[in-house]
Design a protein around this nucleic acid. Structure first.
Lengths: 212, 212
DNA sequence: CAATTTTTTGACCGATTGGACAAACGTTAG
DNA sequence: CTAACGTTTGTCCAATCGGTCAAAAAATTG
């Protein structure tokens, strides 16, 4: 009997753990080589088991990727879901930017896995982009429009504001090697996330026009 | 005799043209599937020739990719090179942002090719990142520091300002499918680049804090 | 202990991969 | 015309790919 990939029903503790080990290894491999560029052998070796053994837990290569993507998307949209109009708008947006930047710092592999998928045309998650994601963004856009009408933030395009937050924060995960190469050994240490946080806060709040 | 891939010396007009067709096809394939995810057969079919015929013009798959990358990098750094302290600083930065956004609109495949390479750890262009690119950025950082000292732009981190410009503009090429999915059919047309240009100008100049 | 079930592995398979090669084809110069 | 050269293709190859399968090994159950 092989381990069914459909539901978590009837799975032993050992099975759960092994599947976890595989997913951890697959995240490493997929995030740096993309789906087609990754091989089952690579993942199996990274997971410390033989290829047939890995295929005992996940019947197909695609099943691993799909499980990984589903998990990723839940945690990925969490920060945006938390954005609501309870607190002060500027504080809310600052918190959102900070949370997204922390995710780029703490979960760079997940960010790159997502970036790989989008770069290749999102063949496996297109329905989710047009469905769940679009719905969520539309909802938050309305929140922002309310803030603009109330004069709490400047009038601008809320869609592109969200894009800009995504782009600037995820850049530190997806283009990490470029960021570190350009900053050099001295400025490219762990402090770069602190610098980025300070800069982004200033950029999004006040831009770079000098105070008159 | 096969066509040597080293120099353009002694190449007939036919050879130049065929190599151009191959590079054009390879740009399509590499930019959407990455290096490992692309096959010579795919490129050959897209170029309208047989695989051995393609290998007559480029001896190895890597040679095509390398040629493509070298060409890309020249045009890619051009906008930043043009940034100098002759004109008004704010105008210069606005122009740079606009040029980068136009490149994302007009050369999305080149942007995705570059993004794919960086995402996978930049195995083939790391020396260039630490050399040519870093040198150029360091130079422009000094220009910006001069602008800050002169009070022409707000004091902030010039490195991360450059990163932010790169991230926000390239986002419209690299994450194009996501942008279009979120904007929907009505807002996702060609006008999205106009909207993005307007938004980015406002963001970088004044941020989103409401005018008091 | 023995019986049963779960886990692991070596061997294998057909398909695809990047690439080699000689033969065939086309073109041009003498 | 023929000889030389540049171009194209069919065929082939070793390596690697995703995946199967039967049997061994280990764990669990009675």
């Amino acid at each position: 009997m092989t381990v069914d990939g459909t539901a978590a029903r009837g799975r032993t503790r050992i099975q759960q753990e092994k599947r976890e080990v595989i997913l951890e290894a697959a995240l490493d491999v997929f995030s740096t080589h993309g789906f087609r560029g990754s091989t089952i052998d690579q993942i199996a070796e990274a997971a410390g088991m033989s290829k047939p053994n890995l295929l005992y837990y996940f019947r197909r290569k695609e099943d691993i990727h799909e499980t990984l993507m589903h998990r990723l998307l839940d945690t990925w949209l969490a920060p945006l879901k938390e954005l609501d109009n309870i607190g002060d708008p500027l504080t809310e947006l600052r918190s959102y930017i900070r949370r997204k930047l922390e995710m780029a710092r703490d979960y760079p592999r997940e960010s790159r896995l997502f970036a790989n998928e989008i770069l290749q045309g999102a063949p496996r998650i297109m329905p989710m982009l047009e469905g769940e994601l679009k719905t969520l963004v539309d909802e938050k856009v309305e929140v922002m429009k309310g803030w603009m009408r109330a004069g709490k933030i400047a009038r601008t395009d809320p869609w592109h504001l969200i894009f800009a937050i995504w782009a600037t924060t995820q850049h530190y995960a997806d283009f990490d090697v470029q960021v570190r190469a350009v900053l050099g050994p001295d400025r490219g240490g762990e402090g770069r996330f602190e610098d980025a946080a300070r800069f982004l806060e200033q950029l999004f709040l006040d831009g770079i026009r000098p105070k008159s």
